[in-house]
Computed example of a mutant assay.
Amino acid sequence: MLKVDNLHVRVESEDILKGLNLTVKAGEVHAIMGPNGSGKSTLGHVLAGRPGYTVTAGSAHLLGQDLLALATEERAHLGLFLAFQYPVEIPGVSNMEFLKASVDAVREHRGEPAIDSVSFMKQAREACKSVDLDQAFLKRGVNEGFSGGEKKRNELLQMMLLQPKLCIMDETDSGLDIDALQVVAAGINAMRSPDRSFILVTHYQRLLNFIEPDYVHVLSGGRIVKSGDKSLALELEERGYAWLEDVA
Rank of each mutant, 00 (worst) to 15 (best):
R223K: 12
E28K: 13
L22T: 13
V184H: 15
I115H: 01
M33N: 09
Y215P: 03
N143G: 07
K3N: 13
A48M: 02
T56R: 02
R107Q: 11
L82M: 14
R10N: 01
L43S: 07
M96V: 03
A185E: 12
D214Q: 15
M159R: 08
R50H: 08
L157F: 08
G34K: 03
I90P: 02
L207M: 15
A101P: 00
A185G: 15
S102P: 10
K139A: 10
I224F: 13
K165F: 07
D195G: 05
G187I: 12
D15F: 14
A124I: 00
L162V: 14
L219E: 12
E144R: 11
K139R: 09
D134G: 03
A127N: 12
A127G: 12
G19K: 06
T54H: 01
N143Y: 00
L7D: 03
P113W: 09
M191T: 11
A101C: 02
L63S: 07
R223G: 12
V225W: 04
G240N: 03
V201Q: 13
S117P: 00
N209C: 05
F198H: 05
G58N: 03
V93T: 10
S197K: 05
G58W: 00
K151W: 04
V225E: 06
N154P: 08
L236W: 04
L161D: 00
A57F: 00
D132L: 06
S13H: 13
I90K: 01
F81H: 15
K3E: 14
Q205Y: 12
T54W: 01
L22A: 14
D229E: 14
S119Q: 12
D179Q: 15
Y53Q: 00
L200E: 12
D173K: 13
V142Q: 05
P91C: 04
V218K: 11
T202A: 10
S220G: 09
L17Q: 08
K18Y: 05
M33T: 07
R206P: 14
G79W: 07
H45C: 01
L2Y: 03
N143S: 07
A180D: 15
A127Y: 03
N6F: 01
E237G: 08
G187M: 13
H77M: 06
A48K: 00
R196E: 07
P194F: 07
K152P: 07
I178S: 14
H61Y: 07
F210P: 12
L43Y: 02
V88Y: 05
